[in-house]
Design a protein around this nucleic acid. Structure first.
Length: 839
RNA sequence: GGGCGUUUAGCUCAGUUGGUUAGAGCAUCUGCCUUACAAGCAGAGGGUCUGCGGUUCGAGUCCGUAAACGCCCACCA
C-alpha cells in the first residue's frame, strides 16, 4: 500500500461516493439500534446548491454518520421542493427567451416544460450531493409534487376545511404584480425606500376651504372613498357631515371620523382607499364604504384611473403628481424614507389587493404549538435555545395564512365549483359540470408536511411508524417563519406529535466582508469550485467547525486551505504509521510514552463524544485538531521513533490512528475511508464502530511523568533559543532520575560537564528533572537582563500567590484541588527563584 | 416602538456550570531542508476581553447600565 507524500484530494475523493452508494451503506434498516432520523430541507429545483446548502447538509451528514457508527438505525431522507413561484418564474423566463409567451400556452403543455426543468435541476443537485459525500438514503427520496406527497396535501386541505380551519374568503392580500399571484405575509420583505410624502389639496364642497391630505401613494386617489380625521381632533370638528371633492376625478367623498387617523401625523387627515390599503380596508368595513379598484392585477392603472388607464402604477404616480401640480392641487412634497413591501421572489413592490383567496385559520393551530412548547417532554427544542422565542412570537401574533397562489406550478387546490356551490374533497365530484379551482397552493403548504409526508403519511406505513417523529431538523434561522413554524403546527395537528425533537439552527454564509452572498453583488462562491480546489473533506471540516451554532459564517478561503493543511498532516501521520508498520510477535508491553498518548486519546474520545452528542462541532473540531496535531504528531510520533520495534508502540500507533480516523470520519468521509482501507481492513470506515471510552487505557501517573518530560524539553529548547546556544554545550544532571529518555527527546549532542566548570551556566528544571546547562560563550549583558527580568516576574508572581493563599476566604471556599495546585506552584516558583539568585 | 444578537490578538473566530499566566487559524519576527509532512519543524512577539457600576475569595464568563454595529417582528396616510 503506497501513500504519496502529499495529500491529493481529487484522487482520494474520486469514485468513493458511488462505491458507498452501491454497497448500500446509506440505507436505513441495517443497524439494530434505535432509529435516528433527519429529513433534508428540500432544496428548490431552481438551480444549483450554494454554500449555504453545503453548510446545512454537511451538518446533517455529520450527525447521521456519527449516529450510524454508534449503531443507530440512521435514516436521512433526501428530497426536493417544487418551489412554486420561484420555479415558475424561471421556467417562464426561459420560455420568454425562446420567444414563447408562457401564459398563452396550454396549462398541460406548460407543465411538461416545467417537469423537464425539474428533471434537469434534480440531476445537478444529485451530482452536488454526491460531491459533498452525503449519506442519503435515496430509496426514500421524495419530491413535493410527487404522488404520495400530493395525497398528503389533499388530505390536509380537506381535513382542515372540514374542521373549519381552511376557508375561502374575500380579503385584502399582498399581490405580486409581476408573478401575478397572491402572497402570504411571510413572502413580503419590507425595504426602506426613498420616496415622497405628497400633500394634496382636497377642496371642501360648498366652501372655499380645503383639507391638506398627505400620501405616499397619490396614484391610489382615484379609488379614494373618504378622508378620515380623528374623532378627538378639534381642528376638524366643524366638518361633521361635510364632503370633499376628489381632485381631477370630481367625485364627492365624505369626511369621516375614525381613530385610525393619527392627529400627530402630517395634517391629521388621511385619505381612505378601501381597496388599496390594508388599514383603509378595515376603516372601510367600519364605515360601510364600498371600495373602488384602480390598479389591475398586472400593476397597471385600470378604467377608473381616467386618462391614466393602462399606465404602470409607478409611472402613473409621477405623471399624476405633475398634473396635480400644474392644476394647483399639489400643496407640497417632502422627501421621506419609508418601508415598502416587496415580493420576496420578484422583488417588485407588492400591491395590497382585495380578492377571493383560500386561507388557513391560524389561531387554533398556533395556540396548540404554544401550549406544547410549555411541555419539556414533547416540545421542539431549539439549538441554540434562543430561537424558540422567534417561533413563539410568530405563533402569538400570527394571522390567517393566505394559501392560494395564482400559478400553475404546484398542488392544484382540491376544490370544485358549480354555480354557487363549492365542493372540497380528495377527488373530483362524479357529476358533470364541476370545475376545479385553477389556483395552486403555497409551496410552504406542502413543505409544512415534509417530515411526515416523506415517511408515507397519511398512510400508516412502517417507515412512518418507525422513523417519525424525526430527531433533528437542521436549517438556517431565516426560514423559521416560513417553514419550521408551519411544520410544527401541522405536525402537532395531524400526527399529534412534534415533527422533530430538536431544531438545530445555523446562520447564513457571508462573504469575507460580511455581506450576504448574492447574484447581484457577484460575491457568491460555488461550493463545487471549492471542492475542486481543496476537496469536499476540507470544505466540510471548515464549514462544520468554524462557528458556534446559530451564528453567521464569513467564508474565508484561507481557512479552507488551513483545513486542507490539517488533512495533509493527518495524511502524513498515517503515512508514517503505515511505513513503519512492523510484525511484532512479543507480548504487548507499553512504555510510558505509549501510556501517555493512550491516556490522552481516551480523554479525547470522551470529550469528542460529549460534544458530538450536543452537536457542538466547533468544540469537536478544536479538540481533535489539538489532539492530532500537538499530542499525536508533535509529541507522540516523535517519542514513538525511539521504540518502533516494540509491540506496545506498534499497537498504540495503530490504535490511536484508527480511533482518530473514526472520530474524523463524519467530518471528512473521503480521506478517512481512504486511509482506513490502507490498513488492510476490507470494510469501509463508515460502517465501523465509533470509538468508545475505555478506562483500562487510562494511565494517569505515566501521563503526568511524560507531561513533565515534555515541559522540560520545551523549557530546555526555550533556554537554548533565548541564549542562542548552539550545539556546543555541556550539562550536569542534578538528580538521580533516569535521564535517558529525556536525553533522547532533547536530541542531545552536548557532553557532560565537570561540576567545577566556569562557563556561563543556566539552570533548566521541571518537577522531576533538573539540568545545569553550560555555554562556552561568556554571558552577555543581554543574558543578565533576561535573568533579571525573570527574577522580577517570579517575585511578582510569588507575591500574588502568597496573597491569594493568605486569603482565608479563598482557602475556605475554593475547591481543594485548586488550593493545592496554588501551593505547589508557589513552592516551585520559590525554588526557581532561589536557584536563580544563587548564581 | 418591541425583541434578539455581536463587540476578545493585525484579520476571522473559540472560550461549557465563574477557578492557573484568556486560546486557535491566518498574518508578523527568529532559527532550522531533523529520513511522515517546508502546505513542515522549533521558538518569539502581539490582548487594560467595547465603556462604566455591581455581586463574589475570584468575572471574558453572572447582574445592572451606556455605546457602536447587525438581525428579526410590528408600524409607517
Amino acid at each position: 500500500m503506497e501513500m504519496n507524500a502529499k495529500y491529493d484530494h481529487q484522487k482520494v475523493e474520486e469514485g468513493k461516493y458511488d462505491d458507498w452508494k452501491e454497497k448500500g451503506y446509506f440505507e436505513c434498516g441495517k443497524n439494530q439500534g434505535k432509529p435516528f432520523t433527519i429529513v433534508i430541507p428540500p432544496p428548490n429545483v431552481t438551480g444549483k446548491l450554494h454554500l449555504g446548502h453545503a453548510w446545512d447538509v454537511t451538518i446533517q451528514d455529520i450527525m447521521i454518520r456519527y449516529k450510524r457508527m454508534q449503531g443507530f438505525d440512521a435514516l436521512w431522507v433526501p428530497g426536493m421542493d417544487h418551489a412554486g413561484i420561484a420555479t415558475q418564474a424561471k421556467v417562464d423566463k426561459k420560455l420568454k427567451e425562446q420567444g414563447i409567451e408562457p401564459r398563452e400556452m396550454d396549462r398541460e403543455e406548460w407543465l411538461k416544460v416545467a417537469w423537464d426543468w425539474k428533471k434537469e435541476y434534480a440531476k445537478t443537485i444529485h451530482d452536488q450531493w454526491g460531491k459533498l459525500g452525503l449519506s442519503l438514503d435515496y430509496r426514500k427520496e421524495r419530491f413535493t409534487l410527487d404522488e404520495g406527497l400530493s395525497l398528503a396535501v389533499r388530505k390536509v386541505f380537506v381535513d382542515l376545511y372540514q374542521e373549519g380551519l381552511i376557508y375561502r374568503g374575500e380579503r385584502m392580500i399582498n399581490w405580486d404584480p409581476v408573478a401575478k399571484t397572491a402572497l402570504s405575509n411571510e413572502e413580503v420583505i419590507y425595504k426602506d425606500v426613498e420616496g415622497y410624502f405628497y400633500h394634496i389639496k382636497y377642496p371642501i364642497v360648498g366652501t372655499k376651504e380645503y383639507l391638506d391630505v398627505a400620501t405616499t401613494r397619490p396614484e391610489t386617489m382615484f379609488g379614494d372613498n373618504a378622508v378620515a380625521v380623528n374623532p378627538d381632533d378639534e381642528r376638524y370638528q366643524k366638518y361633521v357631515g361635510q364632503k370633499v371633492l376628489l381632485p381631477l376625478v370630481n367625485r364627492e367623498i365624505p369626511i369621516i371620523f375614525d381613530s385610525h387617523a393619527d392627529p400627530s401625523k402630517g395634517t391629521g387627515c388621511v385619505k381612505i382607499t378601501v381597496n388599496h390599503d390594508p388599514n383603509d380596508y378595515e376603516v372601510g368595513k367600519r364605515h360601510d364604504l364600498k371600495g373602488i379598484t384602480v390598479i389591475g392585477l398586472d400593476g397597471k392603472m385600470n378604467e377608473n384611473a381616467l386618462h391614466y388607464q393602462g399606465m404602470d402604477r409607478l409611472e402613473c404616480r409621477e405623471a399624476l403628481v405633475k398634473e396635480l401640480q400644474e392644476k394647483g392641487y399639489l400643496l407640497g412634497k417632502e422627501k421621506i424614507v419609508h418601508s415598502v413591501g416587496h415580493s420576496e421572489r420578484t422583488d417588485t413592490p407588492v400591491e395590497p389587493y382585495v380578492s377571493k383567496q383560500w386561507f388557513v385559520k391560524m389561531r387554533p393551530l398556533a395556540l396548540r404549538v404554544l401550549e406544547n412548547q410549555k411541555k419539556k417532554e414533547t416540545k421542539v427544542h431549539f439549538l441554540p435555545s434562543r430561537f424558540e422565542k422567534i417561533m413563539n412570537h410568530w405563533m402569538e401574533i400570527t394571522y390567517d395564512w393566505c394559501i392560494s397562489r395564482q400559478l400553475w406550478w404546484g398542488h392544484q387546490i382540491p376544490a370544485w365549483y358549480k354555480d354557487d356551490q363549492v365542493y372540497v374533497g380528495m377527488e373530483a365530484p362524479k357529476e358533470e359540470g364541476w370545475v376545479q379551482d385553477p389556483d395552486v397552493l403555497d409551496t410552504w403548504f406542502s413543505s409544512a408536511l415534509w417530515p411526515f409526508s416523506t415517511l408515507g403519511w397519511p398512510n400508516e406505513t412502517d417507515d412512518f411508524k418507525r422513523y417519525y417523529p424525526t430527531n433533528v431538523l437542521v436549517t438556517g434561522y431565516d426560514i423559521i417563519p416560513f417553514w419550521v413554524n408551519r411544520m410544527t403546527f401541522q405536525g402537532l395537528h395531524f400526527t399529534g406529535q412534534r415533527p422533530f425533537e430538536y431544531c438545530y439552527i445555523h446562520g447564513l454564509i457571508r462573504d469575507k466582508l460580511g455581506r450576504k452572498m448574492s447574484k447581484s453583488l457577484g460575491n457568491g462562491v460555488d461550493p463545487m469550485d471549492v471542492i475542486h480546489d481543496y476537496g469536499a473533506d476540507s470544505l466540510r471540516y471548515y464549514l462544520a467547525t468554524s462557528t458556534a451554532p446559530g451564528t453567521d459564517l464569513r467564508f474565508e478561503e484561507e481557512k479552507v486551505r488551513s483545513s486542507w493543511n490539517f488533512i495533509n498532516k493527518i495524511w502524513n501521520a498515517s503515512r508514517f504509521v503505515l511505513l513503519n508498520q512492523k510484525e511484532v510477535k512479543s507480548l504487548i508491553q507499553y512504555r510510558d510514552s505509549d501510556k501517555w498518548i493512550l491516556t490522552r486519546y481516551e480523554k479525547t474520545v470522551k470529550d469528542v463524544t460529549k460534544y458530538m452528542d450536543k452537536y457542538e462541532f466547533q468544540n469537536v473540531g478544536s479538540i481533535l485538531y489539538k489532539f492530532i496535531w500537538e499530542d499525536f504528531c508533535d509529541q507522540y510520533i516523535e517519542m514513538a521513533k525511539f521504540s518502533l520495534e516494540e509491540s506496545g508502540t506498534q499497537n498504540t500507533l495503530k490504535k490511536v490512528l484508527i480511533g482518530i480516523l473514526k472520530m474524523l470520519h463524519p467530518f471528512m468521509p473521503f480521506v478517512t475511508d481512504e486511509i482506513y482501507q490502507k490498513f488492510a481492513t476490507k470494510e469501509n470506515i463508515m460502517i465501523s464502530d465509533y470509538p468508545k471510552y475505555e478506562k483500562e487505557f487510562v494511565f494517569l501517573e505515566e501521563e503526568e511523568e511524560i507531561n513533565d518530560v515534555i515541559s522540560f524539553v520545551k523549557l530546555f529548547r526555550m533556554t537554548k533559543a533565548e541564549h542562542q546556544i548552539g550545539k556546543e554545550y555541556a550539562v550536569v544532571l542534578q538528580n538521580e532520575k533516569d535521564y535517558s529518555f529525556l536525553m533522547q527527546m532533547l536530541k542531545w549532542e552536548g557532553h557532560l560537564a565537570d561540576h567545577g566548570s566556569t562557563d556561563t551556566c543556566y539552570k533548566v528544571m521541571s518537577k522531576n528533572y533538573s539540568i545545569l546547562l553550560y555555554d562556552e560563550k561568556e554571558s552577555t549583558e543581554e543574558d543578565e537582563l533576561k535573568k533579571q527580568k525573570e527574577i522580577e516576574t517570579l517575585k511578582a508572581s510569588i507575591l500574588k500567590r502568597e496573597n491569594l493563599l493568605a486569603n482565608e476566604n479563598f482557602c475556605k471556599r475554593a475547591p481543594e484541588k485548586l488550593v493545592k495546585e496554588e501551593q505547589e506552584k508557589l513552592c516551585f516558583e520559590k525554588k526557581r527563584l532561589s536557584e536563580l539568585t544563587d548564581f
